[in-house]
Each structure stands twice: as C-alpha cells, then as structure tokens.
Write a protein that binds this DNA or RNA. Structure first.
Lengths: 169, 169
DNA sequence: TGGAATCACTTCAAGCGTGAAGTCATTGAG
DNA sequence: CTCAATGACTTCACGCTTGAAGTGATTCCA
C-alpha cells in the first residue's frame, strides 16, 4: 500500500514479506468494503427513520432475543460493539422511548435491555427499508458462490488469530 | 436480522423478499467484518506511531503518487473518504509536519497535498507495522481461493448499482 | 467582456465512538 | 462473616466524522 518495499537486509529485524498483487487486491478490497458499505446501508434507514445502522442493528437484535430482552454484554457481543458503545447507544434509544433498561433479577450486575411496544413497531417499520438496502448493495450484485465465499471468509476472520476456544458466548 | 417476517399480503407495497439462511450469513458476515476489522488493524499503528488507520492510508496514498503529491479530491477517491473528511485529516497531518498543502499550479481550484521528508520517513517506519497487522488479521487466516474471492467480491460491491460508466477516475 | 454557474475545496456545529476511571453487585478466600 | 477481588456496566473528556453552508477559482455563454 505504501511506496516502500522493505527488502530486509541480512539480520534485519524480522520484516514481514511485502504484499504481492493478489494479496494487495484482497486487502484493499476488504478495507474499501469496510469504509464504504456502512454509509451506503445507513442512508435509507437514517433518512426514513432517523436511525443509525448500528442503532437499527441494536434494536433488531433486542427484538430477536427471547422476550425481546437481552443483557447489555450479550448485546455488545452480537452487535460487534464495545460495552461502552452499547451503553451510550442504548441510553439514547431509551431516551427516545424505544428501549428500557432494568437490572437482571438473576444477577444484579447484568442489565437487561428490553424493547418497548414503540420500539417493536419501529423495527417492524424499518426492517423492509433495511432489507431493501441490503439486497441492493450487497446481495443482488453477488451470485450464490460469492455469497457463500463471503460468509466463509467472514467466519474465518471474525475470530482473531489468538482467540480460540471462545467461539460461542 | 429482525424478528419480523413481512409476508406481503396481496396488494402490499412491494415488500422485498426476506433473507434466507445463506443470505443472512453473507450479510451478517459482511457487516461484522466492517465493524471489527478497522479496529483490529488500527491498534498497532495507533500504539506504535500515534496514527489512525485512515491517517496511515492517507499518508501511504500520498507516498504512492508521482512526486509524492496528489490532489485532495483524488486522495478522497482513493481512500474512500469524503472530501470533508480528507480536508480535516490532511489539516491535522499538516499541523504535525508530515504533509503540506499548496494550490495546484495547473488549476487553482485544486489543492495538492504533498509529503514532507518527515512524512515519508513516517510511512517507511509505519509500513511494516501495518503490514504485519494485515497479514495477521486478514491474509494469513485465508487461503488463496478466499483471497481471490474477497478481491472479486469487493470489486463487485465497490461500484454501486446505479453507478456505471465511471469506474476509472 | 461580464456575470452566472460550476467546481474544489474549507469550515463549523452537532453528534458519535473510545478508553480510562468510576460505581455498584456478586463471588470467593480466609 | 468480612473484605478483597472480580464482573458488568456507566460516565466523561477527548477526538473524529458528517453535512450544510461558506469561500475562491475557473469555465461557459450571451
């Protein structure tokens, strides 16, 4: 990516091998996807419902949980966000009347985030908007093999190198 | 993604088809990559050189341009950032002494961003750090077929649906 | 030639994410 | 039992991104 080609001289401190053309394509492809897709997918949600993509995913994940309630830490895990981020997001969603928070009766350290009826209605209304964007920007341009490859690649990368043995939970 | 399955009744306003399991896997895979990878790839750069991933990419792209100078708008294009974002990023990089800005002699509307010597040295020093992270978090976990698929998928998605005829520039 | 339109940025305020430090609940060792 | 350790958040200050509104430079055409 840089105009720098570190041919490691003898005894150089373990410089990693430079990227060849194919590797570079894979890498730049991934990073541009990561930079471009969220914006494209967020636009319709934001325009029609005043929601961030991440806010929608948060609401959506709560709606999928049994009883439409989920622990903050679990929510952070399934949305790929930090606990701090989720705390902020849920606070805002609560302010807007879509979510409520309460301590988990089973263990007071946990906080349960629950959907209100308004929150559920919002998810129902926003889902088709989101779905349309996902089809348009992700699914439709790809064929079946691409979609399978994407799922497989994501599965391999999601778990980072030194992070085995805690795939679930 | 949501616990809502819009079976469109007769005459319903064109609800898009819901996602089947394979489609959902592809979609959630993509979005979690987009959420997770930037953070992982930024960490070492930020720790060792006080650089954002985006700042590194910006410097790196300038270093690759002929004469180590590039127009702001071209820089925005190659980094997948907005012009506004680049204006802010480059302003900060300039303050730190790594970049200078000057009007393009050929057309005073353009601004050329150029690397200083310090900026070039920084790219040289940061490149191996970045490279190591890319290998560890992206390239190494994938095999050759995966990497090819990733490049192909990104190429298909980069250009959005109604955006043909301006692939280059 | 003049003046409107277009272009390439730049700025600013508002909102969001991050990481460190703080709070409160529960567990566990002695 | 008690009190330190751990766990699950929450808060806050700081920095970054966004989008709308601005500033000059250049082009177009009447």
């Amino acid at each position: 990516m840089a105009a720098v080609d570190p041919e490691p001289g003898p005894g150089a401190p373990e410089e990693p091998r430079w990227l060849d053309a194919a590797e570079k394509e894979a890498w730049t492809g991934l990073i541009s996807l990561a930079l471009l897709m969220p914006g494209r997918l967020e636009a319709p949600l934001h325009q029609e419902h005043g929601l961030t993509l991440f806010e929608y995913m948060t609401l959506s994940q709560i709606s999928e949980a049994p009883g439409r309630a989920i622990r903050m830490s679990e929510l952070a895990y399934v949305t790929n966000g930090s606990l701090s981020r989720l705390s902020n997001v849920v606070k805002r969603l609560e302010r807007r009347g879509w979510v409520t928070r309460s301590p988990d009766p089973a263990d007071g350290r946990y906080t349960l985030a629950s959907l209100t009826d308004d929150g559920y209605e919002l998810v129902v209304a926003a889902a088709p908007v989101h779905l349309r964007a996902v089809r348009e920007h992700v699914l439709d341009p790809l064929n079946k093999a691409d979609r399978q490859a994407l799922a497989r690649i994501a599965a391999k990368l999601r778990t980072r190198p030194s992070d085995y043995g805690r795939e679930a939970h």
